[in-house]
Amino acid sequence: MHLLIMRHGEAGWHSLDQERTLTEMGRKQVAQCARQIAASPWRPEVIWSSPYIRARQTAAIVSEILNCPVEEKDFITPDDDPGVCLNALLESKHSPLMLVSHMPLVGALSTLLVDGHRRGIPFMTSQAVVLDMPVVGPGCADLKTQFLP
């Protein structure tokens, strides 16, 4: 399985966490990253998005550029357990699959899949990584590449 994990674009701080929206710079950086993914061999079949507005906006921009559907998942919000997402990945038939979410989840999930622990690596906004997992499980992924805005 190939998994792309992306942190949402830059968002403003003018509202409640779940309602934060992308800034103009955030929109531009997401589009820039999505165009890099479009030119790569890892175009996702489907995008899983957090239900938070900034993640949904990010997924919509990526979806438009990559021409792939978005599915909202309620288990990939900032403080969700990466183990729950791992269980969902075990059941997924999509590859490549893209996940658009938040820190600290994107860092914790990436670290769990690559290194087998949950300490979490940092992600910039609009950053995406590609993980190659012959088997979906903790410590089973290799970092293939990353896309930066």
Rank of each mutant, 00 (worst) to 15 (best):
A39F: 13
N87E: 15
S50K: 02
L148G: 04
F147S: 13
L16R: 12
G26N: 14
S15L: 06
V46E: 11
Q32M: 12
L86A: 03
L113A: 00
P78G: 01
D74G: 14
F147Y: 11
P122N: 08
L131F: 00
W13E: 12
R119S: 09
S95P: 10
R35P: 10
L99Y: 06
S63A: 11
L66C: 11
V136D: 03
T145D: 04
S126W: 09
V70G: 02
A31E: 12
G12K: 09
R7F: 01
E24F: 13
S15N: 09
D115M: 05
W13Y: 12
A88D: 14
C68A: 04
T125W: 01
F75P: 10
E24N: 09
N87W: 15
G26V: 07
T111Q: 10
Q146I: 11
H14W: 10
Q36N: 09
G83F: 13
I65Y: 01
Q146T: 12
L90S: 15
A34I: 08
A108K: 07
M103K: 11
G120V: 02
M103Y: 05
A108V: 11
M1I: 03
A34M: 08
A59V: 01
G83S: 09
V30Q: 10
R20A: 02
L99W: 03
P82L: 03
I37F: 02
A11F: 06
A11K: 09
L131A: 03
L66K: 09
S63N: 07
V136H: 05
F147L: 05
Q146G: 14
D81H: 11
H94M: 12
H14E: 13
A38Y: 13
S101C: 01
K93Y: 13
I5W: 06
S92Y: 07
F75D: 14
L86N: 01
A55I: 10
D115G: 11
A141T: 05
G26C: 14
D74E: 15
L131K: 01
R7G: 00
H94D: 15
N67P: 12
L143C: 00
I76H: 08
F75Y: 15
V135F: 14
M6G: 06
A88K: 10
W13L: 09
E24D: 08
Q36K: 13
C140H: 10
G116Q: 02
A11R: 06
V100H: 02
S15G: 08
A38D: 10
P134G: 13
L16G: 11
V100S: 02
V70I: 15
L16Y: 08
P104M: 07
V135C: 12
A128Q: 00
A128P: 05
V70Q: 09
A55V: 01
P134S: 00
L66V: 15
L86Q: 00
K144G: 08
A34W: 04
D74S: 15
L4C: 05
D142K: 08
Q57A: 04
H14G: 14
R56I: 12
V100G: 00
L131H: 01
A88P: 11
C33G: 09
N67C: 13
H2F: 06
M124S: 12
R54Y: 09
M6R: 04
Q36H: 06
S126C: 07
P51A: 00
S110N: 07
T58L: 08
W48R: 06
I76Q: 04
K73C: 01
P44N: 02
V129C: 00
V129M: 06
M98N: 07
S50R: 02
D132M: 06
E64A: 03
G116Y: 01
L148E: 09
